[in-house]
Design a protein around this nucleic acid. Sequence first.
DNA 1: TTTATTTTCGGAAACGTTTCCGGAATGATC
DNA 2: GATCATTCCGGAAACGTTTCCGAAAATAAA
Lengths: 345, 345
Amino acid sequence: MIFLAAKKVTIEDVARHAGVGIATVSRAINNGEGISAKTRTRILQTIEELGFVPNTSAQSLKVRLTNQIALAVPDIRNAIIPDIAWAVEQAAKAHGYRVVQINTAGNARAELEVVRDIKKLHVDGLIVMPLAYPKTLPELINKAGLPISVINYGKQLDASLKADVVCLSILEGKLVMEHLQQIGRTRIAYAGTQKDVIEDRYLAYELALDRVDASLVYFGEDFSLQTGVRAADYFHSLARMPDAVYAVNDMVAIGLVNRFKELGVRVPEEVAVVGIDNNQWTTISSPQISSVSIMGSEVARLATELLLRRIREQSRDDYEKVEFEPRLIVRESSVSLKRSPMSGS
Amino acid sequence: MIFLAAKKVTIEDVARHAGVGIATVSRAINNGEGISAKTRTRILQTIEELGFVPNTSAQSLKVRLTNQIALAVPDIRNAIIPDIAWAVEQAAKAHGYRVVQINTAGNARAELEVVRDIKKLHVDGLIVMPLAYPKTLPELINKAGLPISVINYGKQLDASLKADVVCLSILEGKLVMEHLQQIGRTRIAYAGTQKDVIEDRYLAYELALDRVDASLVYFGEDFSLQTGVRAADYFHSLARMPDAVYAVNDMVAIGLVNRFKELGVRVPEEVAVVGIDNNQWTTISSPQISSVSIMGSEVARLATELLLRRIREQSRDDYEKVEFEPRLIVRESSVSLKRSPMSGS
DNA sequence: TTTATTTTCGGAAACGTTTCCGGAATGATC
DNA sequence: GATCATTCCGGAAACGTTTCCGAAAATAAA
């Protein structure tokens, strides 16, 4: 009642009030051609007076563009995803676009659904960050019928994908392993989630080693601190502990370091730990965690720019595939075995 | 080109194909009255065949509802806001609503703008979490003309506000102060941001003390870890250090604890630290941080439910004002002075 | 069978824009 | 002042739905 009472003022009201036709008002709104400066300002003024706001639905119906894009991520609460959501929103806003937020819960069905039902989403394009990455996703993307940007979380992608792809620094795992080997660690362990979720990070582990000692690999349930804690318990229980742990992300790394400390294992003297993501907590943990920045904000910004460009130029049929260089930041949790360790607390 | 080529199939195509009128198709889509089960299934089938998806803009234009709500928060990257965004999206999705995400950057102008231009947002309602809280906001809300839910971050609100309000546990500061006093701390400091940003948290500090020692109050620039670090430096530089610090949130608390450790100040023996938010890092920090949960997810869910109810029942003119009880979780960073402290590392 | 009632359906009018197209007004050129 | 080119403007036709209203069909009652 109270809200409905708010009389909706339409373009027609403005036209009548200003003594012009509705076509002219439309031109005034959209900075269109063929209107004199004089009448434009007059119209703009009466628009102000009447508090007229163009009906977005009607505009969209005519123009077939909604000025909205969708962002589908696994879980807005996790790791660097807030950074990504932020960067996407900023970039979109700069171009007059709104962002609708979708959490797929890293769930294959939900990921497919968002691409399959993209038409129901009421958006001009989609940025999707697939985690589960179901097999039929590429096919669905290819026939989506709407521009799509993919923020790729490590999986190897089909080259024929009809979408722009920006990768979250695909060589981050290699960087970690090289670093650990370079500082003289020989029994390097891996702590992550199921092998197939962020496969490349695990593959980098295998790739860097001549031979994988299965007992040095811990697969937890997720990327959480808890997984790190459990991994530390597990490694501690081994007859011969690792002298380094490559953690699938910072959360796990921090969980590890913390639990190791509780268990009396010295980090980095006895065990070095390196994570991935380079989130702000790495500098807070004690010892501070070495980590690899996978350039989340930059990736997100670029993915957005590419999407918006494709929306503008629907005709192009060359698809970008971009990778950012990951950056290793060495902190306290990984030091060379050659250098004398700091005195233990 | 390639995308435009995707022939848009309309309700008319479906009607022709199924040998019925477009009105009947519409009824089939919307589970409308006055249609036989037989024809409905037939229509649904041809819809499937043709891959018809109703044009949301056209529907919105007719029905005046977009099935979208907006969520305006200061910064999706901060503190408990990802939790809030998650909870809002989940609740909205359960009712068939999409969420468009807006970051106001805790910026007064942006906060006003989002409410003032709510009509341009193409949404049925708005959930706003004001941080800067400009003076004219309540007035703007009152004449918004669209349902609004407010997630309130501590500020005292106008009772006449024409919006449902859910408060992030307004007595959290009191809880902290009571706790610190109860464990025997007498020189309690405050570390936060400018006084007027989350005013109530600071007011709780003043309220709990007979007399405020201005030297024990540190106002930083934001809620970040960095602010905590700087605060620790400041307190450490005092001739007589505080024996407890009430931090405006967990980020600041963790920054404090960490810096104190670096400076050789023992927590909690020499200084107790308590934060607010109860985020997951409190259990990871060493020592673990005592904190107050302000029930972010619950608040967000309720704010969403209230908004959606108001969208359904636009006529009601009674506005809810809900507060959740905050919960104090005592961890290692705050222990009683009476109990013998643990042995120093 | 006829009539009355109910159910099912289709035509057409909105919803509020954008844009095409033709006409009026203005200015320039001779 | 007539002619032509330009600029500016308004009418009206879309855009793809929902929904009102009346007609037709089916069913029930007589």
